[in-house]
Amino acid sequence: MTLLSAPVEAVPMGRLQLSYLPRLARRHPLVLIGGGLLVLLIILALAAPLYAGDPVNIDPFKRLEPPSAEMWFGSDNLGRDVFARTIFGARISLMVGLISAACAAFAGLLIGVIAGYSRSFDNVVMRVMDGLMSIPTILLAIALISLTGPGIGILIVAIAIPETPAVARLVRSVVLSVRERPYVEAALCGGARLPRVLWRHILPSTIPALMVQGATVCASAIMTEAGLSFLGVGVPPEIPSWGNMISSSRLYLAIAPLTIFAPGICLAVTVLAVNLFGDGLRDMFDPRTRRRR
């Protein structure tokens, strides 16, 4: 589900250089805030074994304990360390979110570029995309997962497939506008072969739009993963993930609210970081906002 997608015009990539970073911070703080937060979260997640305890160790004598020096966020109904589980949960949520967003972006890019260039392919495939788009994301993912049973692999596929049509549509629209530009015509007249024109002249113009859409897809993928795990069809229950944690603690909300709030807040902060990054990118690439400044 892509509520955030907005038309993004194709711009040349010249502006994306390292020397642009200080100006970027001044003009588009959202990109840096969102991106920085995201990098921080990824580092925290990757370094989890260095500072967080054991996320799966069950201790029946320490069930639903309040926060302490030993267990910063207390323990859940099986006596597991909520802090460790939250930190380790970040790994699975970020991994599934990023990989499925990358898959959706790649598949969407491929379909979009080809559809933008081939009429016959366009007619068939874009109708299929319309069809896929009309099935609610979470229901489509549930249907796909219900075929094989829960697992990380099918989860990534099930999240990526519903996100692909929006990317494909966007890329296609950019390609359709770029293919009429004089420089594409010039390249073709100059004897460049079609694959080379697609790769060197058309593909780069789709990148800004793809990056903005990619952030949206990533935010949506992280939320879908958590939602599916919350419903019990996502990440297998033995692996700590934010959705699983909320799902398994929901009966203990009154006694140990942190067991739900800790993963919930982390989930919201992660999605917020991705969304801010995407919003910032859109402002940055959008010629209309750039002129206003």
Partner: peptide, 22 residues
């Protein structure tokens, strides 16, 4: 709106339950 987009319904739902019901 930044928050509205980013907080999934099952997180905001439990927050609302905790503060307005429990």
């Amino acid at each position: 709106s930044a928050l509205g987009y980013s907080v999934p319904v099952f997180v905001s739902g439990y927050f609302l339950i905790y503060f307005f019901a429990i």
